[in-house]
Design a binder for these strands. Sequence first.
DNA 1: TTGACTATTCTAGTTTAATGGAAACGAATG
DNA 2: CATTCGTTTCCATTAAACTAGAATAGTCAA
Lengths: 110, 110
Amino acid sequence: METNEAIAALTALGHSTRLAIFRLLVEAGPGGRMAGAIAQSLAVPGATLSFHLKELVHAGLITGESRGRNICYRADFNAMSELVSYLTHNCCAGAMDDSCPPASATTCGC
Amino acid sequence: METNEAIAALTALGHSTRLAIFRLLVEAGPGGRMAGAIAQSLAVPGATLSFHLKELVHAGLITGESRGRNICYRADFNAMSELVSYLTHNCCAGAMDDSCPPASATTCGC
DNA sequence: TTGACTATTCTAGTTTAATGGAAACGAATG
DNA sequence: CATTCGTTTCCATTAAACTAGAATAGTCAA
């Protein structure tokens, strides 16, 4: 993942409405959610939701697919894991030993 | 991790200068870096760097410790891993099977 | 084709964040 | 004490993002 992509993804997630949308779609899993259902769940006006959905799509964090007159949005789990690995890339200058907190951690976020 | 903390952390990282600072400190590991060294590495004016360092400290992503007239900044690896797990929390409504892309992934970002 | 429905784009007003020069601060040095 | 160095705070300017009403475009049902 390029730096610019990571910045776009992090900026997109650094907003309460968009983070709520993304988390909703992460919970929803591969089935996704219709735009209307998202608007209803989060009580966000349509125009505002559309703006934030576009931001998330542009950042590559979610995808939208037309289904008749609805649009089904899904979290892009691949992009999410790439973002996570970007943040920890080359941590502690690559020393994967006890001096590196993430490397010696017993729990895994995955 | 609370939602507000996650938003603060993601907003802080969603900026090129701050992401560069954070990645520099992640690479530096537990030893950290002096503020002056960061300014030199990234070619950022002192006032601008101080502004961004304060944002990162406020977001809980890094810590600063006085060392004489210098200040040593370090990445907070615990906060980083909490942020990562926040993003994937309850993904696919908790179904940790093949229908959940992160759960069935073979590679681990850690 | 008409009408109801869903979602997006347009648009404008409001709010918030970023930048960097200048000045101030605190700690170590002479 | 006075100086120097590293860092932060102050502040005004500039730029960007957020919000949501209204208008628009596409889709299906009858």
